[in-house]
Structure formats: C-alpha cells, structure tokens
Design a protein around this nucleic acid. Structure first.
Length: 119
DNA sequence: TATTTGACCAAGA
DNA sequence: ATCTTGGCCAAAT
C-alpha cells in the first residue's frame, strides 16, 4: 500500500533518551520534603547541562512517579513546571517546604544531598 | 550536519 | 533589587 507521502504520523510516545532516563532515575531518589536544583542534578550526572535537565523534565516527566516539583532553581526560586509553577508551589507546600514571595525560605535546610543520600 | 531552543546559572552594569 | 549578557550542553528542528 502506498502510504501518502506526508501522512501525519501517529503520536508515538517518545522513548526517553539515556540522558532523560538518568535524570528521572536520580530524581526518584529524592524523598518527600526534600528538593534539589537543576544545577545540582546536572552535576550529579556529571555534566553542566543545567538547561538540558529542565528540558528533560518538560518532556513527559513520567507523571506522578517522577517528582518533578522537587527541582528548583539554585537561587531558591521555584522555577517552571509542566502544569504551572503555581501547582508546583502547592505541591511543595504540601510537603512542608516553606515558600515566601516565590522563594524557598531556607533552601539549605531542604536540599537533598546526592553524595550521602541524606538531608 | 547546522542551527535554534530551553522548567538554568553567574557575573556585571 | 532588576535587567542584560554570555555561557552551558542535550534535544529538537
């Protein structure tokens, strides 16, 4: 059968790239009430591609199982979110992460340490 | 293959 | 404090 040459392809679920898989895997390690930053997450993966981390999350963050809302900016601001930064703020507050004026009050206190797997 | 695009970052004006 | 600029690097175009 001759396929029409510019048939609109069926939306395949894009399979994650290795980089994306690593981002998600690491993110799943972060416990309730703790956060990390785009930069730290990137560096934990051995790269300085901070922005690429954000892009990886924009793309199908495996909903629910991957806690995308626990990734914030290095300066304590909340950062973006696929469902709106408001939603992100709510999720964080629901985990008792104090936020005031769009910023995490004490970032140090809630940062997850990838090295020691501890807070 | 080349260019553009980011849920970012840090330093400067 | 805000704004701009240059830099970073994986993915998308």
């Amino acid at each position: 059968m001759a396929m029409p040459k510019s048939s609109a392809p069926i939306e395949h679920t894009p399979s994650p790239t290795p980089f994306q898989s690593r981002v998600y895997a690491l993110l799943k390690e972060i416990p309730h009430g703790k956060v990390t930053t785009y930069k730290r997450l990137a560096e934990a993966l051995g790269t300085r591609a901070y922005q690429a981390v954000g892009q990886a999350l924009t793309r199908n963050p495996n909903p629910v199982v991957v806690p995308c809302h626990r990734v914030v900016k290095e300066n304590g601001e909340i950062g973006g979110y696929a469902y709106g930064s408001e939603q992100k703020r709510r999720l964080l507050e629901a985990e008792d992460v104090a936020i005031r004026n769009g910023r995490i009050v004490d970032l140090e206190a809630v940062l997850f340490d990838f090295e020691n797997q501890r807070a």
